[in-house]
Design a protein around this nucleic acid. Structure first.
Lengths: 185, 185
DNA sequence: CGTTGTTATGCAACGAGGTGCATAGCAGGA
DNA sequence: TCCTGCTATGCACCTCGTTGCATAACAACG
């Protein structure tokens, strides 16, 4: 139940509407925490009634008006409390790993194209991360050598990069393994 | 919604009761697919009514009787169908990454012990994987060089090992980053 | 004999999360 | 003008998943 906290962090980095949050969850934040817009709107309303966030109606021209959310003091406290509590390591769900073990009871070679699809997706993400790193962290910070927000965003991004590289290498391993069954049928 | 399929794979590897499945989901399978026993029992009943699995009452001495499930032909077909369908890459949820970015608005150094806890958990998992690898895959297969089940289980395990190694290296990176804020407060 | 622990199965209730759909303002192109 | 597409918010429904609890058989220990 950390969606609230992910939203708090995102709003602390920059206030915004539910729609804008949903878009961020498709981009930067979404690479380590996913959420649909319905979920975000629902949680935002709960956070609003809990006084975790403030709302401000922002009239817009050329597009519908929006509600801009920003973090209120109780929200900051809630985040601080959550940061001080231990969190259990994430529970993993890898369809592909299930499929690979399941392929032993079907045709292993039939999985090759699926694995290649995943490899391509991870290659694309890696390229996206690297482009973002070059853009946002390519040159030294203008705010001094110890800008916490920037440094911590960077180390999280490096985690994403390391993850994608690991996945690509592993998927190559998987492909090599599957290919052996293909060749000798 | 691949829990059914994870159960099918597990039952194909070896038939067993709901309880036994739950224990497997705490061990080997659980490292890439988690499930509680309630979930497993519920899904097993659904799978039984869909004729995906057969049940056999097994009286036991010295402990309560059990129901042993095994995969029925329609279950095999369902698995085969699922294997042939493309699956979207997993949705990720990393509490720790949220916490790290959130630490920029709190005390970054306060996260160090939490990150160390996670590092320890991953080190433990890695050791467990490596022990399992040495045990199960240390010597060449007795069933010939192309035992699909064994080879595919091994490549999935290698994925787990690669993941844990990557995580440990990244957490060291995180710790080094956090330490910089600690030193210069 | 009572307690604790393990095997084994299950119910009830709740919250999290996802899908589909609806609405509405406005822009831009066919 | 109609259609498509983007911004922006929301409802209804249903499934997934977790928590807490309950039951029952037996083993081992004090």
């Amino acid at each position: 139940m950390a969606l609230e906290h992910a939203i708090l962090v995102s709003l602390l980095e920059k206030p915004g509407s539910g729609y804008e949050l949903a878009r961020r969850f498709e981009r930067s934040i979404g690479y380590f925490w996913t959420a649909t817009h319905q979920q975000i709107y629902r949680v935002l309303r709960r956070m609003e009634s809990d006084r975790w966030v403030d709302v401000r109606d922002v009239p817009q021209y050329g597009r519908p008006d929006k509600k801009e959310y920003s973090v209120a003091p109780p929200g900051r406290e809630a985040l601080s409390l959550w940061l001080s509590e231990p969190t259990e390591p994430e529970s993993v769900r890898h369809d592909l790993a299930v499929k690979i073990r399941g392929a032993a009871f079907d045709d292993p070679a039939a999985l090759i194209s699926e694995v290649e699809r995943h490899r391509q997706a991870h290659t694309g993400r890696l390229a996206h991360y690297l482009a973002g790193e070059a853009r946002d962290f390519g040159e030294p910070s203008a705010d001094g050598p110890l800008d916490a927000e920037r440094e911590l965003q960077h180390v999280v991004l490096r985690g994403g990069i390391a993850y994608e590289r690991m996945m690509i290498a592993w998927l190559d391993d998987v492909l090599a393994t599957l290919a052996r069954f293909d060749a000798e049928h």
